[in-house]
Design a protein around this nucleic acid. Structure first.
Lengths: 299, 299
DNA sequence: GCCTGTGATGCCGTACGTGCATCACCCCGG
DNA sequence: CCGGGGTGATGCACGTACGGCATCACAGGC
């Protein structure tokens, strides 16, 4: 044996000793361990020699623990219990029963697809802890690149290298405007009607893709929009619209409960589109918990 | 292999895996473990097979932990640290550096020999915890028999089977009496002078040996004592003497600080004798800590 | 007194952990 | 583009030590 680092015995010795230390009977312990009695005697003797202390007092009728044996048993029992539990723990981990996943999302994702996904995942994998954090698309992309999050729900913004993506939501936006707005009484609007209306958008850096689609839609309609305010997160734009500071774009899904001072109107003709994408790194390969989450989220 | 109960791997596997899991490099880890690299590869592969999970992702330039590997490492490290500490712990125990000893004593022992012994033992063996409890001789003898205490300081009371004993103190008693007593002005007293003086003793059941020696001393002196009160522990007798309720016997050593209302007078002629004995069971053999204590106490 | 039951010991086969040599593969540099 | 250094994996042969079987030494009991 070249050297047994730090620990001069093996688990076998401890398991055997625990049995004898509890039963105080070599033959019965050997039977319980499914080995022959001499092997057990040898193993215990080896352990005693390894730790440099007598662990058992052998009398002719039975065995009793020495103080050293009591101390060792006291130390060994929890250690063995812990080690014995490891395979099951790992099994639970690789099967996706337990684990934790760091997930980022945008406000739109939380307003649309995310709640249903979370509910279903939690129902099927209650042992997996989710760390959820709202952050803009651009931040999610760098976090994914750095491995800080396992997956993200964001809004696509051109190509996403090193990522797998799955399109979860794609909705033509409508317009949210104050009920006091002259166009608020029409059932649908066209972009070109809104040339003079000031718009509340968000900083382009936060989701350049959508931002550019908004401008493209205006261009297609032949008008140039007036950008009055920028705000983030997008949902807060409702407050500005409500305050009469302008209109904003919104997907129908996120315009569900609205204050009475604002109105949501679909667009006919060109319209910007909101997209929610689930993205995760191509490598390393997702662990079991993440794989299960991705499967449910993509369903 | 007949069956490896509960735990499908050996400490060797865990030690090896910990090294690789920390260094993330097979060759360097093998060198640090003083084994060849192939042996390490095999051992880790065996562990992975045993726990049913890939623990390391082998890439061509280095190694990285899988989630399962991280979890296992997290579990294994404290376990190995605990197990590695065991030999030293046992060594400390058998060498008597640590441990604990249950000790019983009587008030007289605490008033005489015990403080010096405790001080010296604690100086030489600071890691040994002492559980001290005052209890009468008879209780100590049954506690020793039952193995409830490791040794006792008591007053011998006839033969003590199954015990080793060591006589630590043997003092002729004097008499403690109120200063108002007619005999208080004599420098020494004789028992026969005290025939009419009421005495405060203790229940005979608590130390029949001494009690009988008191009566024997009176008999030798040709008088019959008047037993007025019984009290326990003995030291409380001082209070009764101070209250003028009678006299009592006392060893010179325990009559050091006395209230001014009482006086201690040596006896000439027959006198009862106080004996303090250290006793401990003949078997089981004393452990290292107890042996060290006995050696110091007997010195 | 023998018989039963305890743990320890002698002997031997074999399984398995090990080292050496080599392989398969990839990155990197000329 | 091709070779050299470096990674971990694999084939093979050796030695050890673990385990089983048989037996020993010893104490208690109807």
């Amino acid at each position: 044996m070249p050297r047994e680092f730090q620990i001069p015995f093996e688990l076998r010795h401890l398991v055997y000793f625990r049995e004898v230390g509890q039963r105080l009977h070599f033959r019965k312990s050997a039977e319980a361990l499914a080995i022959a009695q001499p092997a057990l005697s040898r193993a215990v003797a080896q352990l005693e020699s390894a730790v440099g202390a007598r662990l058992l007092n052998r009398t002719r009728r039975g065995v009793e623990l020495t103080p050293a044996g009591r101390l060792l048993l006291e130390r060994v029992e929890p250690a063995l219990r812990g080690l014995a539990a490891i395979p099951a723990e790992l099994k639970a981990l690789v099967s996706g029963e337990v684990g934790h996943i760091r997930i980022a999302f945008t406000g739109l994702a939380m307003a649309t697809v995310l709640p249903g996904i979370l509910r279903e995942f939690h129902r099927r994998h209650p042992g997996v802890r989710l760390e959820l954090s709202e952050s803009p698309t651009a931040s999610q992309l760098t976090a994914l690149e750095a491995g800080e999050i396992a997956c993200g729900f964001f809004h696509p913004d051109g190509p996403t290298p090193h990522l797998h993506t799955r399109l979860l939501l794609r909705e033509r936006n409508g317009v949210l405007l104050p009920v006091s707005h002259p166009l608020a009484n029409r059932p649908t609007l066209r972009l070109r009607d809104l040339a003079d209306t000031p718009f509340v958008l968000f900083p382009r850096t936060h989701n350049a893709g959508f931002y550019d689609r908004v401008l493209a839609a205006f261009a297609t309609a032949g008008v140039t929009p007036r950008i009055a305010e920028e705000i983030w997160p997008r949902a807060n734009g409702v407050g500005l619209v409500r305050a009469g500071m302008g209109a904003t774009f919104m997907a129908p899904s996120e315009a569900r409960p609205l204050p009475s001072e604002v109105a949501f109107r679909p667009l006919s003709g060109p319209a910007p589109e909101s997209r929610v994408v689930l993205g995760w790194p191509q490598n390393p390969a997702p662990d079991a918990a993440l794989a299960a989450f991705l499967a449910i989220a993509s369903a």
